[in-house]
Structures are given as structure tokens and as C-alpha cells.
């Protein structure tokens, strides 16, 4: 474990806490893409299939359980909780996210570390996470003004994988045999998708103005 990865995991956890706070405090999921939440639930379920078979550390197991439980809880809230469900705007959240699932799985069948069930689902989860934010970014562009908590949620979610890139650089420089091309390349693509959001987020922070993404 290094400081970049720990900071990345904590930023990821923070993004989830901010989203939970937004949904709990406002009893609303306006501006939140249910599809992105569903994709993230699939990402964690596919990536942590080895939750009970591979013990790495208490921290690792604990965080995996937190990520799986929180992502499922958020999807449940948006789909089932009567107050929150009413605020979900399905006319804005129209990204065909099943295409992202299909494309990621197809890519994982060709590009993986080993042709085993666990490794194909691991690679699938890496590719899917890289594009999972797309429905959310599209929804933000459509919904015009973005409430602070939702903006902060997306910011921290994008920042965490950026910190992981620093972690991979650090490990590449300090560990002799460290190579994680699938995770690294996907992580760079994932972080790059946030580039314009980060730009408008920085502008809104600098001008102390409302975050607004151009349509």
C-alpha cells in the first residue's frame, strides 16, 4: 500500500459517502444517473468475485464489502425507496448503458490477463468502470444546473482513479516486476473522460459560480 492508493481509496469512499448524504439529506436523486449506479454495482460484483476465496488484508476485504453494499444500497434507493424513486428522472437518464456492459464484456473475452472465469470478470469490471460514468456525465449535461453534492460526488469519483494512476507510476518505479497494463490503460481512459467535467468544475470553483456543463 502507498499513499497514492490509500488517498485514492479514501477519495472513492468519500465520493460514495457524499452521494449517500445527498440522497439521504435531500431524499432525492435528482441529477443522479441510476444507470451509472447500476453499472458501478456490476463493476464491484464482477471485480470482487474473489471476496471469499482470496484474503489479501482486513482493509481490502472491508473496503470490498463497503463498495458492494453501498452501490447496491444506492441502486435500491433509486429503484425502490418511494421518496427517492419519485425524483428519478428517467427521461433524462437515457444512455443505453447495456451497450457499455456488452462492449466491456466482449473486450474482456479478448483482452485479459488469463483466460479464466475470475480474470475475464476482473478485466470486464475494469473496462466497465472506465465507461460507467458516461450516463452520469450525459445526464449532467442535459440537466443543466448541478447541485453541489452531485458535483462533488462526480469530482471525487473522477479524482480517485487519477490518484490510482499516481499509485501505478509509484509501484512501477519501486516494484521490479510491476506491470498492470489493463488497469493502467483503462484508468487513464477513465480519468480522461472526466477532463471536461474537471475543467468546468474548476471554473465554477474559481468563479464561485454554479457548476454548469455546456449542453
Amino acid at each position: 500500500m502507498n499513499i497514492f492508493r490509500l488517498a485514492g481509496d479514501m477519495t472513492h469512499l468519500l465520493s460514495i459517502l457524499v452521494l449517500l448524504l445527498k440522497i439521504y439529506a435531500t431524499k432525492s436523486c435528482s441529477g443522479v444517473s441510476r444507470k451509472t449506479q447500476e453499472l458501478y454495482a456490476i463493476v464491484f460484483l464482477a471485480r470482487y468475485l474473489d471476496l471469499f476465496t482470496d484474503f489479501i488484508s482486513v482493509y481490502n476485504t472491508f473496503m470490498k464489502i463497503v463498495f458492494i453494499a453501498s452501490s447496491l444500497a444506492i441502486v435500491w434507493c433509486i429503484r425502490v425507496h418511494p421518496m427517492v424513486k419519485r425524483s428519478y428522472d428517467k427521461d433524462l437518464d437515457t444512455f443505453r448503458h447495456y451497450l457499455l456492459v456488452a462492449a466491456s464484456f466482449l473486450l474482456a473475452l479478448f483482452l485479459h490477463e488469463k483466460f479464466t472465469f475470475l480474470e475475464i470478470f476482473w478485466a470486464f469490471s475494469i473496462y466497465l468502470e472506465a465507461v460507467a460514468i458516461l450516463p452520469q456525465l450525459v445526464l449532467l449535461q442535459r440537466s443543466g444546473n448541478v447541485d453541489n453534492l452531485t458535483g462533488q460526488y462526480v469530482f471525487f469519483l473522477g479524482a480517485y482513479r487519477g490518484l490510482y494512476i499516481l499509485n501505478w507510476i509509484y509501484r512501477y518505479l519501486t516494484e521490479p516486476r510491476f506491470t498492470r497494463w489493463i488497469a493502467c490503460v483503462s484508468g487513464v481512459v477513465q480519468t480522461a473522460l472526466y477532463a471536461d467535467f474537471f475543467y468546468y468544475y474548476f471554473i465554477s470553483w474559481k468563479n464561485n459560480s454554479k457548476l454548469k456543463l455546456p449542453a
Binding site: 500500500m1 492508493r5 481509496d9 472513492h12 471485480r47 474473489d50 482470496d54 489479501i56 488484508s57 481490502n60 473496503m63 470490498k64 463498495f67 490477463e113 476482473w122 490510482y164 499509485n167 516494484e175 498492470r180 488497469a183
Partner: peptide, 10 residues
């Protein structure tokens, strides 16, 4: 042992 495992990252 942690770094020996392959997928030791979240």
C-alpha cells in the same frame, strides 16, 4: 504477502 497477490488493489 499482500503485494504477492495479483489483484491486491480495489
Amino acid at each position: 504477502a499482500e503485494d504477492g497477490k495479483y489483484h491486491d488493489e480495489l
